[in-house]
Design a protein around this nucleic acid. Structure first.
Lengths: 140, 140
DNA sequence: CTATATACATAACGCCGTTATATAGTTGAC
DNA sequence: GTCAACTATATAACGGCGTTATGTATATAG
């Protein structure tokens, strides 16, 4: 097993570990959709595209998020067929809280690490930024 | 934002990135259950405990895995109430294949990285090992 | 004006998980 | 040995999450 494969295996384990450590919250797609909406309202189909989901799945998700008060539907004034999905104030608040909870859970684990391990992870920050260039930053 | 929080955020993004990059395959619980079974047959309830699932959920999962030929039910000779779940040869083969596919997908991405970033990640291997000490290694 | 394309909703399905409950087998007190 | 209590699994009913196939209303091009 060479170095790159060791890294790949370590990332695999890291994912399973993170999923155990981080509180369940809502689905990845739901969180990501709220995050996307925090930049402004979007149509159902546009959301579906951005989240890599099918349109009916996004319709169902928006229904649930509407029921839970995270988003609100409004007609698109420029197109009678379309619906604009808006993030509600409560949706924004909840998104922030869940992100904070996620970070706090990971942080607790990181703080347990010996200094040299924390330093090693800090040294990999740029590499992780590079690798995850396509992923939304928390402050989007 | 201090160093530890930066690391927590980076890990957050890394995990979401990895989940996007890796092919969907089967559910985490299904993969993990097959992995657990590769050390030997176990009861439904023991599996549920180890995977952190409720017993009826594990019964349903074993049903699906049985239908797909990954596992096989056998009576427990020492207890008429219990069922021993065995990994089939096909289940073991499939588990190996999916693990290989997962590693290959991550590896492809890692190989794209500049040498210094790969080195930085290699430097964090021990830290990741430490962090994920409780997670099953791929070769269990 | 009509044909086609678009945006969304709905229906039917499957996977994945939950809690509450039923059934069958085991075990211990008497 | 019998019976009550416990245990292992299964079943039922539900909800979240996603899919494809299809229906309906609006928009738009010719």
């Amino acid at each position: 097993m060479d170095q790159d494969e060791k890294i790949a295996d370590a990332l695999s384990r890291l994912v399973r570990w993170a999923i155990r450590v981080v509180p369940k919250q809502m689905s990845m797609t739901a969180m990501s959709t709220l995050s996307t909406l925090s930049s402004g309202p979007l149509r159902i189909s546009e959301l579906a595209d951005r989240e890599g989901a099918a349109q009916p799945g996004m319709t169902a998700l928006v229904n649930r998020l509407e029921t839970s008060g995270h988003v609100r539907r409004a007609p698109d004034p420029s197109d009678g067929r379309a619906t604009l999905v808006h993030l509600t104030t409560q949706g924004q608040r909840d998104l922030d809280a869940r992100r904070a909870a996620r970070t706090a859970a990971l942080r607790t684990e990181i703080e347990r690490l010996p200094a040299e391990h924390r330093a090693a992870l800090a040294g990999a920050l740029e590499a992780i930024d590079y690798l995850t260039a396509g992923v939304d930053k928390p402050n989007d």
